[in-house]
Simulated scan of single mutants.
Amino acid sequence: MKFKLYQLPVNNLKFNLVLMKRFNGYKPFLYNITVNACKFFANPKSSPVAKFFYESVVTFSNINHSCPYNHDIIVDKVPVEFINHRFTQILQFPEGDYLIEAYWYRSGSPIAVAKVYGTLS
């Protein structure tokens, strides 16, 4: 994934993370959290749920620092085995189809939506 940031620097950022599971359509499942991203990146322990998802991609991205962001955001080459381990061994999610939606806001205005679909089997 590559997110092009057109207005730099970014230093007032929030995100809403929604986990959904497929039950005759995608329905909310376990988590729906909103986090001030700049404060979270400075102190990831402030939100354990966001920290779990953050740790799932931080090693494979360039989001490993706090605000401001003066560059595009890249998440690349996340191994399936790594994600599978996190979602089946660390947190034991049941098998099924999942959707993770991340809504991003800058200064209160929506700027992006990222949707990641996956299947645990």
Rank of each mutant, 00 (worst) to 15 (best):
F23L: 14
S61I: 04
V10H: 01
S121E: 13
P48N: 06
I100H: 01
P79C: 02
F82M: 03
L13S: 09
V10A: 04
K51M: 11
M1Q: 11
G118P: 01
P28L: 12
K21T: 06
S107H: 11
L99E: 14
H85S: 10
E81F: 01
N11E: 13
G25I: 12
I33A: 04
A102E: 07
T119M: 09
F3P: 00
A37K: 00
C67D: 09
F3D: 02
P9H: 04
D72P: 11
L5H: 13
V113A: 02
F53H: 05
F15E: 09
V35A: 04
A112T: 02
K4A: 12
V57E: 05
I73Y: 01
A112D: 10
V35C: 05
A37V: 09
V10Y: 00
V49Q: 07
Q89R: 11
C67T: 10
L13M: 15
I111P: 02
K39Q: 13
E101W: 01
I33P: 01
T59M: 12
F60K: 06
V116G: 02
C38I: 06
F29P: 02
K4R: 11
F60W: 15
N24R: 12
I111D: 00
N12L: 08
K14T: 08
N64T: 06
G108C: 09
V75G: 08
F52C: 07
I33C: 08
S121L: 10
K115C: 09
S61Q: 10
A50Y: 03
S66K: 10
N84P: 00
P9C: 04
T34V: 07
K39M: 09
R106S: 13
N12W: 01
Y26G: 12
S107Q: 13
V58K: 15
T88R: 07
V113W: 00
N24G: 15
N24F: 11
G25H: 12
W104V: 12
A42T: 06
Y117E: 14
Y69M: 06
D97R: 10
A42V: 00
D72G: 12
Q89C: 05
V116K: 05
V113N: 01
V113C: 03
S56L: 03
L13Q: 06
N64L: 09
T119I: 10
I74L: 13
A50G: 05
Y54E: 13
V113Q: 04
I90L: 11
T119K: 14
P79G: 04
D76E: 15
A114V: 12
D76H: 13
L30C: 06
S46Y: 00
K4Y: 09
F15Q: 06
S66A: 14
Y98K: 08
R22G: 01
P44E: 07
P68K: 03
Q7V: 14
G108V: 07
R22W: 11
K14C: 06
H71S: 15
K21I: 15
M1W: 09
Y98M: 05
D72I: 12
K77D: 15
Y103I: 00
S109K: 10
K21D: 02
P79I: 00
Y105S: 04
I63F: 09
T34L: 06
N43T: 03
N32H: 14
F3L: 13
W104P: 00
L8Q: 13
I63G: 05
N70D: 14
R106L: 02
I73P: 01
F15I: 00
F87A: 03
T119N: 13
Y6A: 08
E81S: 11
C38R: 04
C38V: 07
N24L: 12
I100C: 10
